[in-house]
C-alpha cells in the first residue's frame, strides 16, 4: 500500500489582494522505504508540499491519503494522533527545545506514546546512539554544534519509529561537511532500518546521493516522477531525472 498519496492537490495562499499558487494539481506518491528528495528553486512550493504530506496544512483541492485514509475526513485529534504515530519531522532550524537536554529533546515525542519513563529513556538513548551522539545526551542545544543539533533532531524524528520522516531543508543551516554526513546518516538509516525519508533541498551536491528526486517549479512537478520505481535499492548514483 502507498504510504502517502497526493492526487491533483492544489494549495494557494492569499496575501492581501494577491493570490499565490504554491502548489498546482500535484500528483505524488510515497512508498515504504522511499528516499525522496524534493528540489526546486526558492518559492517553488517544496515546504508547502512537505507540510501537506505531513498533515500540517490542509489542501485547497485534491485529495491526500495517508495509508489509504483520506486526511480531509480526520478531525483535529485524529490528525494529532496521525502525526505522532506516522511521522517524524526534521526542521531546517532544528527546532530543539532550548531548555531541554539532547536526551530530553529526543524523549519529547515519546510523551505521546504510552511508555514508562525508563522505556522512553532507553529508546531515546538508542536513537541518540544511532546518530552517533550517545556521549552528548546531557548537553543542551546551545552546547552543541549545528551539525550535532541536526543529528539530535534526526534522533528525535527517529525515536518514535515513524513510518515516514519529513525533513524541510535539513542541511540548509549546516556546512558542507556536516550536510554530507547528515545525508549519509539518513541514507544509512534508510538502507539499514528501512526508514522512509522525504526531504527538500536545493543543494545539488546532495542530490547525487539520492535515489529519487522530484523537482518542483512554480508549484508544479516538472518531471514525471517514477513513483512505481523500485527504490529499495536506492544506491543509484547521479540524478535520476534532470530538469
Amino acid at each position: 500500500m502507498n504510504l502517502v498519496e497526493l492526487e491533483s492537490v492544489s494549495k494557494s495562499y492569499r496575501l492581501g489582494e494577491v493570490e499565490v499558487t504554491a502548489l498546482d494539481s500535484v500528483d505524488f506518491t510515497v512508498q515504504h522505504g522511499d528516499f525522496v528528495a524534493l528540489t526546486g528553486p526558492s518559492g517553488s512550493g517544496k515546504t508547502t508540499m512537505l507540510n501537506l504530506i505531513g498533515c500540517l496544512d490542509a489542501a485547497d483541492s485534491g485529495e491526500i491519503r495517508v495509508l489509504g485514509q483520506p486526511v480531509s475526513q480526520l478531525d483535529g485529534q485524529a490528525l494529532d494522533t496521525l502525526r505522532s504515530r506516522t511521522y517524524g519531522i526534521i526542521f531546517q532550524n532544528f527546532n530543539l527545545v532550548p531548555v531541554l537536554t539532547a536526551l530530553e529533546n529526543v524523549m519529547l515525542p515519546l510523551h505521546l506514546h504510552r511508555l514508562s519513563k525508563s522505556g522512553m529513556e532507553r529508546r531515546a538513548r538508542a536513537a541518540l546512539e544511532s546518530v552517533g551522539l550517545a556521549r552528548f545526551a546531557d548537553f543542551r542545544p546551545d552546547q552543541l554544534s549545528g551539525g550535532q543539533r541536526q543529528r539530535v533532531a534526526v534522533a528525535r524524528a527517529l525515536v518514535t519509529e515513524p513510518k515516514l520522516i519529513l525533513a524541510d531543508e535539513p542541511t540548509a543551516s549546516l556546512d558542507t561537511a556536516s550536510a554530507l554526513s547528515l545525508v549519509e546518516l539518513m541514507k544509512e538509516l534508510n538502507t539499514e532500518q528501512q526508514v522512509t525519508f522525504v526531504f527538500s533541498t536545493h543543494d545539488q551536491r546532495l542530490l547525487e546521493h539520492v535515489g529519487r528526486v522530484v523537482e518542483l517549479r512554480d508549484g508544479r512537478l516538472t518531471s514525471t516522477d517514477d513513483s512505481a520505481a523500485d527504490t529499495s535499492t536506492a544506491l543509484q548514483t547521479g540524478k535520476s531525472e534532470v530538469a
Binding site: 500540517l56 494529532d80 505522532s84 519531522i89 519529547l108 515525542p109
Partner: peptide, 9 residues
Amino acid sequence: GTLRAMGFG
C-alpha cells in the same frame, strides 16, 4: 509549532 508538528495537541 514544533510540538504541534510532532503531534502534540
